[in-house]
Each structure stands twice: as C-alpha cells, then as structure tokens.
Amino acid sequence: MVMMTSSLNETELKTLKDLLNSYIGRKTKPAFSMILGEEVEYSVRSMNLMHLQDIDGILLPFMNQEMCAIYLRAEGDVRIGMLLFMQESQALSLAAKLLGKDTLDRLDSMGKSSLAEVGNILLAGSVLNAISDSTGFRIDCSVPGFAIESLGAILGDPIAEIAVRTNSLILAGVELYAPKSNVRVYIFLFFGLDDIKKLLAHAKDG
C-alpha cells in the first residue's frame, strides 16, 4: 500500500531549499556558465507546497505571460517535472548566442532545437544528475518538449502529471542570470509529496 503524506514542515522545506541550492550551485550554474562562456548568478527563489485547489489563484496573475519553455519529465525512483522557461526576447538572445549570431528576429527550427538542448543540459544533465548523485536514485528522463505559450498553458502539463496522485505538489523556483549577455532564465521543478519525502530521506549533500 502506498502511504500518502499531506504536508511538509518548515524544517523540511528549508532542507529542500538548501539541497536545491547545493545542486544548482555545483552542477547547473557551471553548466550554464560553460554554455554562455561567462559567469552566471543563480538564486533559489522559492520552495512551496501548493494544493491543487489553490494553484489557479496563485498563478492567475501570471497566466497570460507569454514564455518560451522546455519541459522534461523524469520518472523512476521518483517522478519530477522540470521546466526551463524565459521570456521570448531572452530566448532570442540566448539562441543567437548559441548559434553564433549577433541577433535573431525569430526562433526558427535551429533556434528552438538549440534551446531544447540547453534545457536538456540544464535539467537532465545537471539538476537530475545532481539529484541522482546525491540520492542514488535511478531516474530516466524524457526528451525535451518545446513551447512558446502563455505560462498558464505551459504549467498545465507538469501540474497535471505531478499533482494527480496527492492533489498537491512541491514547486521549486530557480533563477539563473548571465549579466554580460543579460540573459535571464527560470527553472521550475515539480515534485510530488511522497517523492520529496523519499528525496529527503536519501539525499546526501556535498
């Protein structure tokens, strides 16, 4: 029988935030820095427990904001929804840099593909890798999905997939910023409550 938990205490949320800080600092920040060829700043902005019935109210102010997003779904010992997103202007700057161009007017297939690869590196190659190293969990990852849509539409898939079992989820928000290129991207990680408990029980920092 699967035991379902309904909440996390403040200490657990803080431990999670510290863990994520460590994962991002050790793996994701250097990876993004290497992609861009410059120093990158990062910040773990949030670590919140959200209940399904409250999600619309929390996200409503941002629903219509158009974003460029890359989504990967990780499954195995734990299930994690991983989203890398940015404003379209930022996506154009990032894709131009990746393709060795001064500027891009629109995201063609090469531009989208390059951004999907960044998502793959930052999410599967660094975040997921850090979680796996720290816990010993075996986790498989999907190919990256790409979208340019309102944040409301983009968040629907991960929320449905993660919140479905317990009607709640842990949403971790990370910001990465490259001052020289002025590129700012965001990572959202979606965990189910039982999976986060497993992660807390198995994670070894450092």
Binding site: L52, Q53, I55, D56, G57, M63, E149, G152, A153, I154, L155, G156, D157, I159, A160, A163, N167
Partner: peptide
Amino acid sequence: ISVGMGELEVTDDKEAVLATFVGSC
C-alpha cells in the same frame, strides 16, 4: 465564476458565466 484545475461548478443562476483556462486540460 472561476473553475479551478480539477474542479467543477454547476449553477442555475442565469446571470452566471462559468470560466476557466485550459492548455492540455
């Protein structure tokens, strides 16, 4: 009347408008 994710609303109020935002939902 806003209908949240995974929720339903039913009404016989003729002034009412039921509203939601869907992507893959």
